[in-house]
Amino acid sequence: MNIVVCVKQVPDTATERKLRSDDKTLDRDAADGVINELCEYAVEEALRLKEAHGGEVTVLTMGPDKATDTIRKALAMGADKAVHLVDPALHGSDALSTSYALAQTLKKIGFDLVILGSESTDARTGMLAAMLAERLGTPQLTLANKVEISGAGITVQRVTDYGFDKVEASLPAIVSVVEKINEPRYPSFKGIMAAKKKQVQTFGIADAEIDAAQVGVANAWSEVADFAVAPPRAAGTVVKDEGDGGVKTADYLASKKFI
């Protein structure tokens, strides 16, 4: 089975994240780039499926040069090889362009199963997997907390508002995972060393037959009109419980008319 995992590099949520003042896109230099957490769960799931059913795991990332760190991390976990889609024309792409660029690349490299995280910590659109399914005409098995494969059939548990749905489809398919699905492994020393020798293929937009007029900040379908740093929350009152903490909280709630 040919499994492709879409992995994104995001600014570390522990550092201050910014938009650029010039083109109002994410400032990728302001913060350290790390692998998007949910993408680690996606890599882990791909590795487990490979261990159970055989095949190969390819990491696919669209991002600037420094996204190679993120690719190495996924390779160190155990993925077999990687494709890095990198081109200045892609800078500032929105969800529609990103899904288009990834779909074009996926058509080139081929797949039985594509696994994504259900959300990234920076864009947080949560739309990528659904958009890929739409563009590629493949079944959408998203928000999965469990994936099972038997032959050409695939079943997932899809997390819903009220609990979960059991969903069936046949391969090839697009899956996105939530963090309940597994516990990602830490790369071993051996894994880290091995990752250095694994093949990372670089694609520019021409290699993936991506139309330059469909990507990048100038061609985005939506735009940031303006932005401002939010005023910090006013410091609140914190009191130590002296046996009357519940009463004091009730006083506060009453002062705010909640009771």
């Binding site: 969800a95 949560g126 659904a130």
Partner: peptide
């Protein structure tokens, strides 16, 4: 959000 995403692709519209 998933519905919005697919709709955006189908109608070539921003979301």
């Amino acid at each position: 959000k998933e519905i919005a995403g697919r709709l955006a692709v189908k109608t070539d519209s921003g979301v």
